[in-house]
């Protein structure tokens, strides 16, 4: 296999990696907010349930969760995910969706904890000052608190985002055809190991882009000095 052929192959795999990454980020960022409201609410049944969920997801390996989502429906309930009508017999789609679901759940939990930390780091005095000035609770949240929270959580969120790019590699345990899967395929079919090392270039390149974007964002928000 020539260098160009391998590059083409890996690019095909990396496009799946990027899709998984993008959809996970888009879906888990808002879901994390919902979860955070659950874990911080005073309504105790919701609080216990969401906290238990976050505990289970954060307390088990992502690779295990992938296998649970992909195999348990078939093994326990005799209804293989591959036979679910919504996937219309499209096996790669079903595998991708299983991986996406798992990643979204996983990252939403981590994001919810980052949000919680970010909001709880704002001193109570600011809420009180807002009230004294006659602002409503929502006015205080959106006009005073939110932007500070965004600034505070930007660094941990960028950290998670970069971790996500690399975590997508785990999806190959359920045969999602991401970039590592293609590198293993090159080893199986053409007996060459170097494409595996070459995948690092793709991850590094994409993470360079992400680092650049997050640095720009941080600079934009740096007018608030804490």
């Amino acid at each position: 296999m020539s260098f160009l052929e391998v590059t083409q192959w890996l690019l095909e795999g990396f496009s799946t990696t990027l899709l998984l990454f993008a959809f996970t980020l888009i879906l888990s960022l808002p879901l994390g907010l919902v979860l955070m409201f659950g874990t911080t609410t005073k309504f105790w049944p919701v609080k216990i349930l969401t906290r238990a969920f976050v505990y289970i997801i954060r307390g088990t390996p992502l690779m295990l969760q992938l296998m649970v989502v992909y195999y348990i429906p078939g093994i326990v309930f005799h209804y293989s995910v591959l036979k679910w009508p919504i996937f219309g017999g499209n096996v790669p789609l079903a595998q991708f969706c299983c991986a996406l679901f798992t990643f979204v759940m996983n990252y939403a939990c981590y994001f919810s904890e980052i949000y919680r930390g970010g909001i709880q780091s704002i001193p109570k005095g600011q809420y009180e000052a807002g009230q004294v000035l006659g602002m409503t609770k929502s006015q205080v949240f959106f006009k005073v608190i939110l932007l500070q929270v965004v600034k505070n959580i930007l660094a941990p969120v960028s950290n998670e985002t970069i971790t996500l790019v690399k975590d997508t590699a785990l999806a190959n345990i359920i045969a999602v055809t991401e970039i590592i899967f293609f590198a293993e395929r090159a080893l199986n079919l053409h007996n060459i190991i170097w494409p595996m090392f070459y995948t690092g270039v793709f991850y590094l390149g994409f993470n360079a882009l992400l680092t650049f974007i997050f640095n720009r964002l941080e600079r934009k928000l740096s007018y608030i000095r804490s």
């Binding site: 992909y70 195999y71 078939g74 005799h78 591959l82």
Partner: peptide, 10 residues
């Protein structure tokens, strides 16, 4: 994970 694939009916 071939055994799980078979058992799950995948």
């Amino acid at each position: 994970t071939k055994e799980a694939e078979l058992a799950a009916g995948n």
